[in-house]
Design a binder for these strands. Structure first.
Lengths: 234, 234
DNA sequence: ACAAAAGTGTTATTTGTACACCCATGC
DNA sequence: GCATGGGTGTACAAATAACACTTTTGT
């Protein structure tokens, strides 16, 4: 077997959306040990010998923040030789979107401090974690354009106004209400589940994301997508 | 320092396009040692202690296939605990697009056999390399839609007919000539560099990819892109 | 009555799609 | 003059962008 002087870790960028304040946040933990003691960092840690990478990411995430049952996806692997002062440590980064209200952070749950930070007001971060978050934000902004990620960031039931506000926050620009609604409804991936109650204005229709409809859209759309050929969006 | 029972490798999926035969190919090497002796595999190998990941990928690629000076980009990290019979080996996969004519493979150059294979006629592959190539093909098909990848796969000068044939091969479907031309020329990222000579039909205009024009397009287009908001292509 | 947010009608413009046709060259 | 690809005109359909308007609720 080949000699192995390289350690392997996983790190998780967890995004949460605060729909009251219209803010996008990331989940961080405060380090208790050197290096970067007391710095904030991404939840993560060393991969164990017989553990799949995604498994390791989910385990570390739960251990350090008690967040569980989330869908994570691989982001990128960071392997610059100097990224960790302890030696050669390569890290596989994952990212996920969660509903912030469903994951309140119990401060100091087990000596490990975890907290949500606005992504535009992050504290100084350990290692190259600022780069990792930056890449995750870029990925999120791209992803939001072709996948219905919004639904993972909102409560199960939501209004079109909330959904639009989320998109405006993630993209960082205002959208036209009329066109947003037409577009999102034409996709036919939402189902009505009721009306708002007790608001001081016309009550909005509440919607829920319908996964079956979304799958149907995927199947139906894929050939057209290919046919369209090249967009050269960027 | 944390104990480290995990080895780290890199693997490269190198795509080449044969414009005479209109075939997309991948570059493979034949293994000389166990495990998977005599199987075909992706060029790659162990990352050295003080080496960046991308550096390792380029080094292994050149050592095993003598292909150099290519732009590689990270694809995905494969870390299933069972993927290598020798023990725990995690592999960071890269991929690249090259002009096949510029990289003829000198068979048996140094006891290491390398060859181009049509991506729809791959031999049995070592490890999980079939999965890696599959993911690379998917990535290529997606990428082709929003980035002008074609130019890396063609000779420096090419006709619109060749470019269209490439897109048809990668996407696996026919495109309308009129619309393809209108679209690609409207992007204004090509410059004319002459005419074909000695062909038994009307000589085609030769084009070259203009990187400055492409950068300009990127800059100009990005705000519109964001504004467009959501496509939900899939 | 008013504020606030939900929700709708409509139009000009741009983009996508499809099909038919003409052009220049070598043999 | 014919086969072979290169290259163009055009018209209909669909998507996009923009703006002004009406509706329903609580106070």
């Amino acid at each position: 077997m080949h000699n192995c002087p390289i350690s392997l870790t996983v790190d998780c960028v967890i995004f949460g959306y605060d729909s009251h304040r219209r803010e996008l946040k990331a989940l961080l933990i405060q380090r208790k040990n050197a290096p970067y003691r007391n710095y904030w960092a991404l939840p993560g840690g060393f991969v164990e010998k017989q553990e799949a990478l995604e498994e390791a990411a989910l385990r570390e995430l739960e251990e350090e923040t008690s967040v569980k049952n989330v869908f994570i996806e691989q982001l990128y692997t960071f392997g610059s030789p100097q990224r960790d002062p302890r030696g050669r440590v390569v890290s596989v980064a994952y990212f996920a979107l969660v509903n912030l209200e469903e994951h309140p952070i119990h401060a100091d749950s087990d000596a490990q401090q975890a907290a949500w930070f606005r992504i535009d007001q992050l504290p100084p971060l350990a290692f190259d974690h600022a780069d990792i978050i930056q890449m995750a934000i870029t990925r999120l902004r791209n992803k939001v354009r072709y996948q219905p990620i919004g639904f993972e960031l909102l409560p199960e039931q939501f209004t079109l106004g909330q959904l639009q506000a989320l998109y405006e926050t993630v993209l960082g620009l205002p959208l036209n209400k009329r066109n947003f609604r037409t577009r999102i409804l034409k996709l036919n991936i939402l189902e009505e589940v009721g009306k708002q109650q007790g608001v001081a204005h016309r009550p909005a229709t509440l919607y829920r994301f319908n996964k079956e409809k979304y799958r149907a859209l995927e199947r139906e759309n894929y050939p057209n997508l290919l046919k369209r050929g090249l967009d050269f969006e960027i």
